[in-house]
């Protein structure tokens, strides 16, 4: 007997997943094909586009800048976000706690375009010329809500009686944090930081309004895209994709091991 009540949903889910992943598959596949146009049939495979992409003089700078931005954003928004989440669970009034949480998540639902131009206005008002630093600050405000969200989920399921037990057994507040809390939440902290890094690596909109004449990988890709079809875009995109997948998979692993779900 065919069980239609499972076959139909399975087909539907498969279709949606294809819809989401088809574009990515196309980019990866065509970064290896000989034809400069993205069209069927495929004629042969080559690594030429990677060679030409990597010989683009801007790519090294863009990659370096992107990694600097990602690292800065991961560390600084990570530290601020983790601290914020700890402060949050200590707020005793429930309404205040949920208001603060909602407020801290706000930047995630404001269109990036608005965040990008608002920051540009602020930087211009205080006389800070556009550049990498401005972009880094932008990345932090984009990542911060996601760090808070991740850490808050972890801390809400955290059994704080283990901390009380540690204090009861003679640990100071600091010792209890060092010996109990931090080892328990460490995977979540690292996961949240990797998530921040991934968001930063992929960030384009806020960057574009604030980075000025500097480069980052998405800004470079944007420039190439605007110019037309260039197969080396596929190669750069595939490299970026590989970096992102590594970060997100690692972040996910760490989050899961922690039972943070």
């Amino acid at each position: 007997m065919v069980r239609w009540n499972r076959v139909l949903p399975a087909g539907f889910v498969t279709l949606v997943v294809l819809y989401l992943y088809a574009p990515i598959a196309v980019i990866v596949i065509f970064s290896f094909t000989t034809s400069p146009r993205l069209s069927m049939p495929i004629e042969g495979f080559t690594l030429d586009w990677y060679v030409s992409a990597l010989s683009n003089p801007l790519i090294a700078t863009a990659l370096r800048n992107s990694l600097v931005l990602a690292a800065t954003s991961a560390v600084l928004s990570g530290v601020m976000g983790v601290a914020f989440s700890f402060g949050l669970v200590a707020v005793r009034r429930a309404w205040l706690r949920s208001t603060l949480l909602a407020g801290s998540l706000l930047p995630a639902i404001v269109p990036l375009l608005v965040i990008g131009i608002a920051l540009a206005v602020l930087f211009r008002a205080v006389g800070m010329p556009q550049g990498l630093l401005n972009a880094a600050i932008g990345h932090m405000i984009v990542s911060l809500p996601f760090v808070v969200l991740t850490m808050n989920a972890r801390l809400e399921s955290f059994d704080f009686s283990t901390l009380e037990a540690a204090r009861d057994l003679g640990a100071s507040a600091w010792q209890a944090f060092r010996d109990i809390t931090f080892p328990l939440i460490r995977p979540s902290v690292i996961g949240a930081m990797l998530l921040a890094a991934a968001l930063s690596l992929d960030e384009f909109v806020v960057t574009w309004f604030n980075i000025g004449n500097q480069q980052s990988v998405p800004v470079l890709v944007w420039g190439l895209m605007r110019r037309g079809v260039d197969p080396s875009i596929n190669a750069i995109a595939t490299i970026l994709l590989a970096l992102l997948v590594c970060l997100v998979v690692a972040s996910n692993r760490l989050g899961r091991r922690n039972g943070a779900s």
């Binding site: 992943y21 088809a22 574009p23 065509f30 993205l38 995109a237 992102l244």
Partner: peptide
């Protein structure tokens, strides 16, 4: 699986749709 696609490059995915839907893109040429 669905969420992972969020992190597959924002610009890249838009660009990919251009190459799929384009006049001489993947869909038309196929």
């Amino acid at each position: 699986i669905i969420l992972l696609s969020l992190f597959s490059g924002y610009l890249v995915r838009i660009y990919a749709w251009r190459t799929i839907l384009g006049k001489q893109g993947l869909l038309n040429s196929t």
